[in-house]
């Protein structure tokens, strides 16, 4: 919608007769020098902070040639790090999909005591440093933590294995889906749900046919963001992982290990895979938006 409007606006001066060009200008437009300075500032910033670092990751990864790159990414420890990262994301993202959807649904469509407290709690992982989130789990479930003796007795291990990694990742990525959905659902209100119920739909069908399709795009966007963060999470995962190579090392942790061992090609090769995952995520989102943009707009319009 916004992009479309912008295109229409920028098409305006071009469509006007040349003689009137000087006067046909949007009231909100600045003079030419101001515009150029602002555009240059913006582009320069994006170039320095986003584009250059991203390009350099790929350049560094390929510095030793394609062969070295391939050797680095097919090394056993690297492959196991990739597998672990995908596994953690594959567990953490669906869990947060369910939690986030449930939380957003409860907050946006119902009134209850402690609602604002719940919203604050959902935001907590955003405001707490990921390292602390990791530490909390070690303190609670580690061998010397509160529940340590109890867990040891039953031979349950949370820390320094996949369970701990998943827990820490779920915690850190919890707000992404809920935060994406809450404003969307609140804006949509309860009218459509009430209409569905008055037409005889039960709660489950109402949710499935009315609530869910109305937030499908927000949900997809939230899932993509959540997934990107789940695969890239470093701090919390670092604390609970124990950095056991081939066992509890995720891709971001593996990058750090390789870098500390002065294996720059290896480090950047794995980093470039992570960057590639992020780029694929964004491209997928853009493609979906482009392909189904009409329905997206139809869903958002009133």
């Amino acid at each position: 919608m916004v992009a479309q409007t912008r295109r229409e606006l920028s098409a305006l001066p071009a469509a006007a007769a040349p003689s009137a060009a000087a006067r046909v200008r949007l009231a909100t437009t600045e003079s030419a020098p101001v515009r150029w300075v602002l555009i240059a500032l913006g582009l320069g910033f994006i170039l320095l902070v986003i584009v250059l670092p991203l390009v350099s990751v790929f350049l560094e990864a390929l510095r030793g040639g394609i062969g070295a790159f391939l050797r680095a990414v097919t090394e056993d420890d690297t492959l196991s790090a990739i597998r672990l990262t995908l596994l953690v994301a594959a567990i953490a993202v669906p869990l947060n999909l369910i939690f986030g959807l449930a939380a957003a649904w409860a907050i946006a469509k119902f009134d209850f005591r402690g609602k604002s407290l719940l919203i604050t709690l959902i935001d907590l992982p955003f405001s707490v440093s990921p390292v602390i989130s990791g530490l909390i789990y070690v303190l609670l479930y580690g061998a010397y933590g509160w529940f340590g003796p109890f867990l040891k007795e039953w031979d349950i291990k949370f820390i320094f294995n996949v369970t701990g990694l998943v827990l820490a990742t779920v915690f850190v990525t919890f707000p992404f889906i809920a935060r994406e959905l809450i404003p969307l659902m609140q804006e949509q209100g309860r009218d459509e749900e009430e209409a569905a119920i008055s037409l005889g739909a039960n709660g489950w069908r109402t949710f499935l046919y009315v609530t869910l399709p109305n937030v499908a795009w927000g949900l997809l966007y939230g899932v993509l963001l959540c997934n990107a963060r789940a695969m890239g999470e470093f701090g919390a995962v670092s604390v609970v992982s124990g950095h056991i190579r081939g066992l509890t090392n995720t891709m971001p942790l593996h990058v750090e290990i390789l870098y500390n061992e002065y294996d720059f090609v290896g480090a950047f090769a794995v980093a470039s895979l992570l960057a590639l995952l992020a780029i694929v995520t964004l491209v997928a989102k853009s493609l979906l938006e482009w392909r189904y943009g009409d329905r997206l707009a139809a869903g958002r319009r009133h």
Partner: peptide
């Protein structure tokens, strides 16, 4: 009961 809402509440999708 048939209910017609003030702002229609049509299913947008």
């Amino acid at each position: 009961v048939g209910f017609v809402f003030q702002h229609y509440a049509l299913f947008k999708h």
